[in-house]
Design a protein around this nucleic acid. Structure first.
Length: 839
RNA sequence: GGGCGGUUAGCUCAGCUGGCCAGAGCGCCUCGCUUACACCGAGGAGGCCGGGAGUUCGAAACUCUCACCGCCCACCA
């Protein structure tokens, strides 16, 4: 989009970012064409939702993915970056319930239909916000393919997936102990448990042993659950309790006979070494109960109140009240032996924060053994590569100890479980809406009331968004996708599940590379969170510094191996950088005439500084490219930044200003070329300002978005120019130091160092702003070079001399290292000589 | 209880497979409004690279160990 409008002297992100996204979209630059012959690159964007708007973590993740997509477009790939949103059932339901509660209402009061309207409204709002933010960030997604995990096609995919698992026999239903949220009134999976440290009391309670006057003392933090005790367990090798197994204990307050069993799961060192077994209210007890065929009693309603008709004193009480009462009664009956303070971790619902109750209930489970095995194999075969590599272990460790996945939820919101029950007790899975029972043909089917875990549908994302289970062109073309970029907290929640889903349904991994980006923390190191007031809204950052600055920073820190604190000053630094690019462009453009600008060619009419900057440029191209290829974006950003500011602006443009103004075709060609390449290199990270500036370069301009990625032009690699340039730059710096020492007064022109030709002399004059043939009288006594500078050089030289004098070093160090040291020493000596000469 | 990551200038962070006096951005100090840019330019101060031990001619980087900080996993009630 050629642009010849005048440029204001200051870069204003607001002014330039506004228009570009619409222009890109209008030109359909981000629309993927499955029939293209180009190699394919695809990313299914992680579907965001949770808080309803994009936060800094999303901004970072979007930046990484967008950088990859833009880079791949430029390297000649057909790119599909597919956006979308997730219905996030449990999170959304919680948000809405909180809103209702704030108005003194509840979802039960307003009813299902009204609640669903609220849900739809919420999704519309969230989608609008996310869409807006996606554009503000410059994310080059294909909006024509936007998906939602509850759209019609996706619903079909989810149901179909369930049915296929069901028919394989991997989906089963049964009463099991699960993590139950008494507020959400739903089961949740092991991964959705938020463990928090609690300071509780450990009660020691004496259980009389039947037929003796002895007793066994157990320890518990939840005395109220004793009402549901159906056994006592000790370790089989525990001498203290030898002979106890096989007898019975009598449950205080209730009088129930409890078999005493020996089980190796009991930790002898903990508490008294004796464990009350409550299979209905503790996961480990549940397993012990299964092993020893103990009775299972549920003593709690789903809402967390006691359900103990056999002990009416406690029936119907909230658990904590029941606990107090139980403790009082135990004390009264002399069963309470003692208490100890006790610190441990207690599971909370990670969505609403309520303390979870392990409860037994009917739930659907997905068998994980085969799926886990498929994941491990894919990993071992290197079909999925993790970046950084260490996260592969997070994945493998989880798979190794995996338990079946509880996929059912008792929510109002979500995908219904496609299982049907007929009046004659038959049960079958059907993705459609069957009218009659498959087995007996009877009508009057009822559908399973539960919905699926949100992550069940998210797990299908990489292929369901491409049209699965239909055999679509998109699916054939863009699956498997290329990369998945995620925060590490959902590695197992989401990434792992996508991998086994892909392997099972598609027969192939869903992506070749997984990249795990850093978590962005608040400036003080706390978690960024709305409720803590530590959140930073990307929109405000964009308003202050521009999306380009935010993105450049995100790319710089995104792949850090540790968490990263939000750092406004660095983002501002990138705004300054954009301003620098802006003004460098202004400088070059303002000195161009009307005549066309040619392209520089190696060896043709180039001055020393031209050769130098072109040589540095091609090295920068190589470095930026290597950085992206290795997912080390900080390398790319740093290389481009340093080159553009500290080589191009600080030296080259200063050196060629006059040549540009004088119409030197070589300088013009080189300056324009270097800017052009710099904009290409930076475009994946700073798409707006680079597109804007690139459009203003001479010649007819299309879109930078679809320009070719620069190759390192090795023909411009010029070590001779780089070596000759160094002493000139050093000499300029020394001259500046002299002037400074002279308090700004004129100093005598330096003697021409040996070996300098006309090129060096001319460059030195321009950069140093003086002329060798200046005949005006110099001060009688030239100022002394700053002593510190001299000292530093002398010290370094001495250090290197010492190293070179060391026999061990000369023998053992590789020749290249020795050479390097010698070269450096030569440089230092030359500098010192020049310095003393001007003194 | 296991595992992982971190500890480098005042702040936020780079430093790849050990070798160019230890780097950047911001902040701070001193000069300078030099017709691209004061969102700038030229200089500068500031670091026993968490502590200790080891390997090596040479270690911020490798090994061991200790101390903190953070995260993940785990059925010790």
């Amino acid at each position: 989009m050629t642009d010849r409008t005048p440029m204001p002297s200051a870069y204003d992100p607001q002014a330039i970012e506004a228009g570009w996204y619409a222009r890109w979209e209008a030109a359909q630059l981000f629309r993927a064409d499955p029939s293209s012959p180009k190699p394919k690159f695809s990313i299914a964007i992680p579907p965001p939702n949770v808080t309803g708007e994009l936060h800094m973590g999303h901004a970072t993740n979007f930046t990484i993915q967008d950088a990859l997509c833009r880079y791949r477009r430029m390297t000649g790939h057909e790119v599909l970056w597919l956006p979308g949103t997730d219905h996030a059932a449990i999170a959304t339901q919680n948000v809405l319930e909180k809103q209702l509660a704030a108005d003194g209402a509840s979802k039960e009061e307003i009813g299902r239909a009204a609640f669903e309207e609220l849900v739809d409204e919420w999704y519309r709002k969230v989608r609008g916000t996310i869409l807006e933010q996606t554009k503000e960030l410059g994310a080059s997604v294909d909006f024509t393919r936007t998906r939602f995990t509850m759209d019609a096609g996706y619903v079909h995919a989810v149901r179909e997936a369930f049915v296929r698992y069901y028919e394989r026999g991997w989906m089963y239903r049964g009463p099991r102990i699960v993590n139950w949220c008494p507020r959400c009134l739903s089961a949740i999976s092991d991964l959705e448990v938020d463990w928090q440290v609690h300071h509780d009391t450990l009660y020691r309670i004496a259980y009389p042993i039947e037929g003796t006057d002895q007793q066994v003392v157990i320890a518990t933090v939840r005395p109220e659950t004793m009402l549901a005790d159906t056994g006592v367990a000790v370790h089989p090798d525990d001498e203290r309790y030898r002979g106890l197994a096989g007898r019975h204990a009598i449950l205080p307050l209730v009088g129930r006979r409890l078999p005493i069993v020996a089980d190796a799961a009991v930790e002898r060192a903990f508490g008294t070494g004796a464990l009350k077994v409550t299979p209905g209210h503790d996961a480990m007890d549940y397993e012990i109960g299964e092993r020893h065929h103990l009775e299972l009693i549920s003593a709690m309603h789903p809402d967390g109140r006691m359900n103990t008709p056999f002990a009416p004193a406690y029936d119907g009480l909230p658990a904590l009240e029941a606990r107090a009462l139980v403790v009082r009664d135990l004390e009264a009956g002399n069963f309470l032996v003692g208490t100890d303070p006790y610190t441990h971790e207690v599971g909370h619902c990670d969505r609403c924060g309520t303390v979870l109750e392990p409860l037994v209930s009917e739930q659907w489970f997905l068998k994980m053994d085969e799926l886990a095995r498929m994941c491990v194999e894919a990993s071992q075969a290197g079909r999925v590569r993790w970046h950084p590599e260490r996260f592969e272990r997070t994945y493998l460790d989880w798979l190794r100890g995996i338990r079946d996945w509880c996929v059912s939820r008792q929510l109002w919101l979500g995908h219904r479980i496609p299982v049907w029950y007929c009046p004659n007790g038959h049960r079958f899975a059907d993705a459609g809406m069957p009218a009659a029972c498959r087995e007996c043909g009877s009508a009057g089917l009822t559908e399973d009331p539960d919905v699926l875990d949100t992550w069940f549908s998210s797990a299908l994302w990489p292929f369901a968004t491409l049209g699965w289970p239909e055999d679509t062109e998109d699916l054939r073309t863009f699956y498997p996708t290329s990369v998945n970029s995620t925060a590490r907290d959902i590695i197992n929640l989401w990434v792992t599940r996508m991998i086994f889903s892909g392997l099972f349904f598609m027969g192939d991994v869903p992506f070749a590379d997984v990249i795990i980006h850093a978590t962005i923390q608040a400036p003080d190191g706390r978690r960024m969170s709305k409720s803590l007031g530590t959140g930073v809204d990307p929109r405000e950052v964009i308003r202050s510094y521009g999306a380009d600055a935010l993105r450049a920073w995100a790319a710089l820190v995104g792949m850090s191996s540790q968490d990263v604190r939000f750092d406004e000053s660095r983002i501002r630094g990138f705004k300054f950088f954009a301003n620098k690019l802006w003004n460098a462009t202004r400088l070059v453009l303002s000195s161009l005439g009307a005549e066309p600008v040619s392209s520089p060619a190696p060896g043709a009419d180039l001055e020393l500084e031209d050769r130098w900057i072109l040589s540095r440029l091609q090295a920068t191209v190589a470095e930026v490219t290597a950085g992206i290829d290795g997912y080390a974006f900080q390398r790319s950003v740093n290389a481009a930044y340093d080159f553009a500011w500290h080589e191009l602006c600080d030296w080259y443009l200063e050196a060629v200003k006059a040549r540009l103004r004088d119409g030197d075709p070589a300088a013009r060609a080189v300056a324009v070329h270097v800017l052009d390449v710099v904009f290409r290199l930076l475009h994946p990270f700073m798409p707006f300002v680079t597109e804007e500036l690139w459009a203003r370069l001479p010649g007819e301009r299309d879109f930078l978005v679809r320009c070719a990625w620069p190759e390192p032009e090795t023909g411009f690699a010029d070590s001779d120019a780089e070596e000759r340039m160094r002493p000139v730059l050093a000499a300029v710096q020394e001259l500046r130091a002299l002037r400074k020492a002279a308090g700004g007064a004129r100093v005598a022109p330096p003697a021409v160092p040996a070996g300098w030709g006309e090129a060096e002399r001319s460059l030195f004059e321009r950069l140093g702003r003086f002329r060798f043939d200046d005949q005006r009288p110099a001060p009688a006594r030239p100022p002394a070079v700053a002593a510190t500078r001299l000292k530093a050089l002398t010290e370094e030289a001495a250090k290197i001399e010492a190293r070179l004098a060391d026999a061990a070093f000369r023998e053992k160090a590789p020749a290249a290292v020795v050479d390097k040291n010698q070269a450096r020493l030569a440089e230092l000596r030359a500098d010192l000589e020049r310095l003393s000469g001007s003194d």
